[in-house]
């Protein structure tokens, strides 16, 4: 179902194209720092640049919800940690994501969850970068769905690594992150190895 590569900003006039949800392991997302807006409109979508070379406006991940914390009084929001074979995703849902907030409220950790959300890069006062996922939905799923995701994410990551030299965002990632493909191959290898346990 591959379609020819289009220029990044080409949206067919009048049609709405939903941003695909990228599959990315926690260990790769943790290294993500570059974020940018495509187009000069205030409403143009924002992206983070994945170290393996893809722009990413939305992610889909399945992992284990290990912790959730309700914070704030007037502007209540949830912070949660979702773990995959490579590390931890920091997930949050605030009053602008009431559906996701209610979904998290109903799930007791630990539980397998499927998360759809938008990655956001933050800088802390001491200069460190943090990336968290503002979620659109959090659904309790079974282990089979988690395993299916690890495969899916492994495949997507390998595809990105293998085409890094030939895509616009691959080249950019190599320049910005000095990505060492071997590191990410190893990450995929280890994640997949855990499926056999």
């Amino acid at each position: 179902m591959a379609t020819p590569e289009r220029p990044s900003f080409a949206r067919r006039e009048g049609t709405f194209e939903r941003e695909p949800a990228r599959r990315v392991f926690a260990a790769e997302l943790r290294e993500t720092r570059i974020h940018f807006r495509e187009g000069d409109d205030e409403k143009s979508p924002t992206y983070v640049l994945l170290p393996t070379g893809e722009r990413c406006n939305r992610v889909f991940l399945v992992g284990t919800l290990t912790e959730k914390k309700k914070q704030g009084e007037q502007n209540m929001f949830y912070r949660a940690r979702v773990v995959d074979p490579t590390g931890t995703f920091f997930v949050m849902a605030g009053s602008y994501q009431p559906e996701a907030m209610q979904q998290i409220a109903r799930i007791d950790p630990p539980a397998f969850v499927a998360v759809v959300g938008k990655p956001n890069v933050y800088e802390t006062p001491d200069g460190a970068t943090l990336i968290s996922i503002r979620c659109e939905s959090v659904t309790a799923v079974d282990k089979e769905t988690r395993d299916r995701w690890v495969l899916d994410c492994g495949l997507a990551t390998l595809d990105r690594i293998d085409s890094m030299a030939s895509t616009q965002y691959g080249e950019r990632a190599q320049k910005e992150y000095r990505t060492d493909p071997a590191v990410f191959r190893k990450m995929v290898f280890e994640a997949l190895s855990q499926l056999r346990l």
């Binding site: 299916r148 390998l158 190893k186 290898f189 997949l192």
Partner: peptide, 18 residues
């Protein structure tokens, strides 16, 4: 569904050229 038979091929791809 999850098919464990897909794992070896991917492991080879991941480990193959490192």
């Amino acid at each position: 569904h999850f098919d464990p038979a897909e794992i070896p091929g991917l492991l080879n791809r991941a480990g193959g050229s490192s």
